[in-house]
Design a binder for these strands. Structure first.
Lengths: 193, 193
DNA sequence: GCGTTTTATGGGACTTGTCCTATACTCGCT
DNA sequence: AGCGAGTATAGGACAAGTCCCATAAAACGC
């Protein structure tokens, strides 16, 4: 899985607690590339620690819960490096929005257009967020130095162009529907198997 | 989940067996939008049947295992329709390739370029497949009639432009790296926690 | 003749990811 | 004075998805 390696990668940059990883790294920085559930971050950290890829040390705090700071180990660094070097299969496509669109032939043209409009809005707001992030300084956790920051900025660029492409497609599709789709053939509603 | 509804959508077009769904629908047609594990298709069909959204009937065959043909029920049609009409949240982004790229600041420029080249090849072959599919007639299971076929062709177009965008980004990124990335700051390799 | 692919179903074990909950103390707001 | 938000950890239950396996007969290539 990627979460494990993503966490190792972040720990390689800076020792951190599960809370830091979740809020600073995943919610703020890597959220455009990989979202992570809080419970899973903690569970993954524990597993990493069991397997000797990370080590933790508790720092007591007054007034707040103790911080359990995780640090990558030499073994963890080796695992991260191995992952970075080894060939990874392309992630299979999995787009609920397009699945829905493809199966929407039972809806009227107007309903399909509404579906597109709704998705467009959401993609647009995602784009706005991405652009705001691109204008803002790179979060510490995303770019430890200039090299890391540059890579992060480049992935932001990838996310932006991907999102723009989707929006453009939605616009084309909407135009196509405005011209009128072919009508559906009458299909039987119910009968014996 | 989407698989459940995708299956209902396919059954709405034509009654089918789990095998048909897996091979004809998911592997051949919808594979660009949603991949499905064979075991999960069967399990989902069973669950659909338990919940009264689909019904099955066994057709004995000689020489081959019996066909268990599933057919969508009125209740299933209602569920599908509800899903098509209800607002769906955008899928969270989850791109292992970009995560890897973002965390690759420990690698040399050449190694990062190699990583990109490798991904480019895979995306290119995905693009070739998509283009071949776009040139071929729409599979029966993807487009039951002209309306369905048109929607399917449009989603193919979406997949093609998305893939092209990624490839373009990879080319830009490669060019950027050829110009030389900033060097990494020296980071401590090991020390006390 | 012999192995592989095709047709067809399904179980078991596992990984990954999500949702909800509990704990516990502080700080700021109303 | 109380209530929610922030800081920090973690368990339980579950949903979704993957991988490997078994069965069984025909057809097809070598």
């Amino acid at each position: 899985m990627s979460l494990e390696h993503a966490i190792l990668g972040f720990l390689e940059r800076e020792p951190m607690t599960g809370y830091d990883l979740k809020t600073r790294c995943f919610d703020d920085a890597a959220g455009h590339l990989w979202t992570a559930d809080q419970a899973q971050v903690y569970r993954t950290l524990e597993r990493l620690s069991e397997r000797g890829l990370a080590r933790s040390r508790v720092f007591p705090q007054r007034g707040k819960p103790d911080r359990k700071v995780y640090r990558i180990t030499t073994k963890g660094r080796a695992a991260l490096d191995g992952w970075l070097h080894s060939a990874q299969p392309l992630a299979p496509v999995r787009d609920p929005f397009l699945v829905r669109f493809a199966l929407a032939d039972g809806l009227s043209d107007e309903e399909i257009a509404a579906l597109l409009a709704e998705a467009r809005e959401e993609y647009q707001s995602r784009l706005d967020t991405l652009r705001a992030d691109a204008a803002a300084p790179v979060p510490t956790c995303a770019g430890a130095d200039d090299r890391g920051s540059e890579l992060y900025r480049m992935t932001l660029g990838a996310a932006i162009s991907a999102t723009r492409t989707v929006i453009d497609w939605i616009d084309d599709a909407t135009e196509r529907i405005r011209q009128g789709l072919p009508v559906a053939k009458q299909r039987p509603t119910s009968e014996g198997v």
